[in-house]
Design a protein around this nucleic acid. Structure first.
Length: 450
RNA sequence: GCGGUCGUAGCUCAGUAGGUAGAGCAUCGGGUUGUGAUCCUGAGGGUCGCGGGUUCAAAUCCCGUCGAUCGCCCCA
């Protein structure tokens, strides 16, 4: 056992785990690009004030913040990407096209107590659309998230987008008897309903000025989950409001239906999220059976860019972390148990029989093959046992083996197709061309997500 | 920040009337039969998470600490 342990809440990524991580990241990236988002990145650490500007001074205890020895500036490792995004958008606000569609796949750091689905260092996919209001923009980012989840192998029966709209929810609460000045507290109560005892819930409901009947309506609203394909009249009726106050939902519903996303989504009036920030649509992605924490969360935050010194610019986005997603995927059997299955396969594995001619030729041949753009490996073992060496080739899942043996006398080598099993003798000078022809056939059918 | 459970080789784990550690797999090597393999054989690798205490003697008992895990707080 080594003397050092990794810091609390961090992970070491050995090749197998790294392959799994890249698998997910590659699908995120491809989905983003396919949906028309451009990748950006910012610094891993920012001025501490950038984060307190958004989240208040209370956030500091949740951050890894630091000051350079001898310096006087306070920094913090980024706990989220949104402030960086907003800073970057504000700095170029005048020249950004509308809408601006950006995504990032950065590492984040939070000084929290690690738990299932929550670590101190994690990767979070961020997708944001700036400069455009309305349901079409909201649904554009939701569609991007859904596309990635679908490509990861998840189905609408596995995960669900739970959507709500701040404006619509506020109207519903008002209709239920919550006074205007208590809407904020009502959202908070909605958010925390599952964590409070019935007594505590009632105490707080009374403080909001709700009588018994209103409390019942409030609890009913919090538990309301309906398909987004339901008619607005039905939704309105079940919430006890007129259909007109649900206009924002009607727009969302129409767009989601036309994008073929209805199966992935449902209305959930218990969804509130980040009390201070969101201004319109809010959503979370959860495992359908309610296991695990939220896979992703996001919403509309129209005051965002302005908060960081830019012009007023509407914004909608979401974040999806790798930790909970990984748990859900593993639980559904959508990640190989052995991450090694996702490591890049060598196009060829070179084996020498140990003769002088073979030993001399092998390194030259390896370099020649690599220069041609192929993935070539060779054994580092001392054994001359061809069987053991072929076993090596099989372990790293090489597509073919190139055996430098007796055929060297005629200036030729044996190439064995490790997938098909066939073997043929090829003159040395034709090796590269032969391998290119073999792998050309392979790569054309395999590179789905590159 | 607060509680429950846990910590022996890279992995899965054995190892209690306390007597300074073992197996399988994996890794590395040798041999045999020229082809992903079989068989034979050898090696490396752990101050039992770390630090104290009790004891002639601690992987084992006690305390602390660090980490993992589950829950509470929080969750951008």
């Amino acid at each position: 056992m080594a003397d050092f342990q990794s810091p609390k809440g961090t992970r070491d990524f050995y090749p197998d785990q790294m392959a799994l991580r890249r698998h997910v990241e590659n699908i995120w990236r491809k989905a983003s690009v396919d949906c028309g988002f451009d990748e950006i990145e910012g610094p891993t650490f920012e001025h501490l004030s950038l984060f307190t500007a958004k989240s208040g001074p209370g956030i500091v205890s949740e951050l890894f913040s630091f000051r350079r020895a001898g310096g006087s500036d306070d920094y913090a490792l980024r706990p989220e990407f949104t402030p960086t995004l907003a800073r970057m958008a504000a700095a170029r606000a005048g020249t950004l096209s509308v809408p601006t569609k950006w995504f990032a796949i950065p590492l984040h750091f939070r000084a929290e107590r690690p738990q299932r689905g929550r670590l101190r260092e994690f990767v979070q996919w961020n997708v944001d659309l700036l400069g455009s209001e309305g349901a079409a923009a909201d649904c554009d980012v939701i569609a991007c998230a859904a596309l990635a989840l679908e490509r990861l192998g998840l189905k609408p029966t596995d995960v669900r987008f739970r959507l709500a709209h701040r404006g619509a929810s506020a109207a519903v609460l008002t209709a239920a008897g919550v006074a205007g000045e208590h809407i904020g507290e009502a959202f908070e109560l909605l958010d925390r309903r599952d964590k409070l005892s019935p007594e505590e819930f009632q105490t707080r409901a009374v403080k909001l000025g709700l009588d018994d009947a209103a409390q019942k309506r409030f609890a009913a609203i919090a538990g309301t989950k309906l398909p987004v394909s339901a008619s607005m009249n039905d939704v309105a009726a079940s919430l006890g409001v007129g259909a007109d106050v649900l206009a924002p939902l009607a727009e969302l519903s129409e767009k989601l239906n036309s994008l073929g996303l209805s199966d992935w989504c449902q209305w959930d009036f218990g969804i509130v999220r980040g009390l201070a920030y969101y201004t319109g649509t809010v959503f979370e992605v959860h495992e359908c059976a309610g296991k695990e924490r939220a896979i992703a969360g996001g919403g509309r935050y129209d005051g965002l860019v302005e908060l960081f010194g830019g012009p007023k610019m509407p914004a909608i986005g979401f974040g999806m972390g790798d930790v909970v997603l990984g748990l859900v995927l593993a639980d559904k059997g959508l990640l190989p148990k052995d991450g090694g299955q996702l490591l890049p396969r060598p196009d060829v594995f070179l084996i020498s029989d140990g003769s002088d001619a073979a030993e001399k030729t092998l390194p030259k041949l390896v370099m020649q093959i690599r220069r041609a753009g192929l993935h070539a490996r060779h054994s580092w073992k001392a054994t001359k046992n061809v069987g053991k060496l072929l076993s090596d080739a099989g372990k790293c899942r090489a597509r073919s083996a190139l055996i430098l043996g007796a055929e060297m006398a005629e200036g030729a080598v044996a190439i064995k197709d490790l997938d098909g099993g066939g073997q043929r003798v090829v003159p040395l000078e034709e090796v590269v061309a032969t391998l290119l022809a073999m792998t050309g056939a392979n790569t054309s059918t395999v590179s789905k997500h590159d």
